[in-house]
């Protein structure tokens, strides 16, 4: 029923320009990418500051305030392995437009991020892997169940755990793609929300191929009930696919101008 939620992935230290901007506290490259993503229709913006072991707390607070002050309290996904930085970010986070997302917990070393999210009334992305990719869906769903119980035990609403099957690269793991899609269906059948880093699937492919793969994978995943994804919202083909799938799923009422809104 609810529209698909897109989390814009382009503010990330994996991009050299953004890494430099975080290090030098240079607002412009970060603000520019945020604006581009919002204009393209992103709902949430992911803020990947890297591990930032020395200055993570100060760095995350700087980024949260910078983006929310400029863009009307845009909702954010706080993306770092540094727990203290996530907590620091939430301290200065304005919830007017949506709860913060903790990106991410898993069933291994990052299991305690679920409690962190519960203690801070945040949404958490729960990656269904422990130390390494789940070998099959039995293992994936065991991780899912364990993280769900952990969240509920700490008082979270099930809807605030967004389960991530972990999208896998086609070039190398082609035989695992349907399994990932089946896992999404299992989350859906349990009434759970889901998300994931979609573009993993097209990693290593030529630039002109990636939007095609991302769009097809996304459409198939939405068919399985995927409720959100971490994506590049400036990929027009992908965003048009999401909007169209939302219409077909009756998540949004059709109007001739639906691609423009």
């Amino acid at each position: 029923m609810a529209k698909f939620i897109t989390i814009g992935e382009r503010i990330s230290v994996t991009a050299p320009a953004i890494r430099r901007a975080f290090e030098e506290r240079d607002p412009e490259p970060i603000l520019t990418r945020c604006e581009q993503q919002l204009k393209a229709g992103a709902n949430y913006i992911d803020v990947n500051i890297g591990p930032a072991e020395s200055d993570g707390e100060e760095r995350m607070q700087w980024a949260v305030k910078l983006l929310q002050e400029r863009f009307d309290n845009v909702p954010l996904a706080l993306d770092t392995s540094n727990m203290k930085a996530i907590e620091a970010g939430i301290q200065v986070y304005n919830r007017e437009k949506g709860k913060p997302i903790v990106n991410s917990a898993d069933a291994g070393d990052r299991f305690n991020r679920i409690e962190l999210a519960a203690n801070n009334d945040a949404i958490v992305i729960a990656l269904c892997s422990a130390n390494g990719i789940a070998s099959d869906n039995d293992e994936r769903m065991a991780h899912c169940q364990r993280m769900l119980e952990e969240g509920l035990m700490h008082g979270m609403e099930a809807e605030d755990l967004w389960f991530d099957p972990l999208f896998l690269v086609v070039k190398g793991m082609q035989d695992k793609q349907m399994e990932v899609l089946e896992a999404i269906k299992m989350f859906t059948d349990m009434g759970l929300n889901s998300t994931g880093g979609l573009s993993n699937n097209s990693n290593g492919m030529p630039k002109h191929i990636r939007p095609i793969f991302d769009s097809c994978m996304l459409a198939m995943a939405m068919m399985q009930g995927l409720t959100s994804a971490i994506v590049n919202p400036n990929d027009q083909r992908l965003m048009e696919t999401i909007k169209t799938c939302d219409i077909i799923k009756n998540n949004n009422l059709y109007a001739d101008s639906y691609l423009e809104i």
Partner: peptide, 10 residues
């Protein structure tokens, strides 16, 4: 309903 929405968009 589709035209109702479309008119508002326009």
């Amino acid at each position: 309903i589709n035209l109702a929405k479309q008119l508002n968009v326009l």
